[in-house]
Amino acid sequence: MTGWLRVDEQAFSGGVEHLVEPEYYNGSCALSLLKVRILETRKLFGATDVILYSIVVNGLPDMKSGTPFWSRQDKFPQVKKGATLSIDPDLGVLLFRGRPQGFLNLYLVAVRDTEETRQFAQLLKENFVAKGIGTIAGSLIQIFSGPTGPVTVPLAREATTQAVEATIDYFAKQKNLAIGVYYASLIREKNYGLGYHPNDYPDSMINCDGHFEVAYEVQKAGE
């Protein structure tokens, strides 16, 4: 997968029939961002304004009920190398709350806040949100659900990942604009990664290729 600076993708052990057994958690989850530290600002001197895009894709895209994802962008002014973004460590930032449908894909994109990135942010919104998942994943799912058989959760994740990758991968390659990209895919077989990421947080954080560090938590949530 080109362009990603850090990938955490949990492997399926088998087909979709393995994802519905009683021992796996099937309730609602809350995914919260706890801490982000910027290690590289892509700026030679001084501080820079940073935008953090957070996108969570919830399982199989449903073209009838709407786009199955949560997204947000947060701006942080005058960030220096080594600085921790201003996120309340006790509350965190809620990125997703709901009942996962087989898998949750998390994408974090940290970029410098410039006129170029603001223009691209609009393209990201228009193409990824309105067209990326709906058009690309939709067409792939039609292929997967053809004569070869029904859509499985692993195939749905593959289609969704391809759809998102096409847009964000371009963003990650923009010279001196993208600070770092993090991708994680959490599956039902692993109870959607309930707990801290990394599991020894706050003693450590996930290092994204030396560009930024991140920590998040997945908790059981009430219905």
Score class of each variant (00 low, 15 high):
88 D>A: 09
113 D>V: 04
87 I>W: 00
125 K>D: 14
112 R>F: 04
64 K>D: 11
89 P>S: 03
80 K>M: 03
115 E>L: 14
102 G>R: 11
64 K>T: 10
68 P>C: 05
80 K>Y: 12
69 F>K: 09
116 E>Q: 14
121 A>V: 02
104 L>R: 14
116 E>L: 13
64 K>E: 14
86 S>P: 00
95 L>F: 03
68 P>R: 08
89 P>Q: 01
77 P>A: 09
106 L>N: 07
106 L>C: 09
94 L>K: 15
101 Q>C: 10
65 S>W: 00
108 L>M: 06
123 L>T: 12
66 G>I: 04
83 A>K: 03
67 T>Q: 14
115 E>D: 15
104 L>A: 14
62 D>V: 04
101 Q>E: 11
115 E>N: 12
84 T>D: 01
122 Q>H: 13
63 M>L: 15
75 K>A: 14
108 L>W: 11
75 K>V: 09
97 R>F: 09
119 Q>T: 13
70 W>A: 12
100 P>N: 09
70 W>Q: 15
76 F>T: 08
113 D>A: 12
85 L>P: 10
65 S>L: 02
66 G>F: 07
117 T>K: 00
103 F>E: 02
116 E>D: 13
106 L>Y: 14
105 N>G: 15
122 Q>L: 11
122 Q>I: 15
65 S>D: 08
67 T>K: 10
68 P>G: 02
77 P>T: 07
94 L>E: 15
113 D>E: 12
92 G>K: 11
92 G>T: 11
98 G>S: 03
108 L>E: 06
109 V>D: 01
102 G>W: 06
118 R>F: 05
78 Q>K: 13
104 L>G: 13
97 R>P: 04
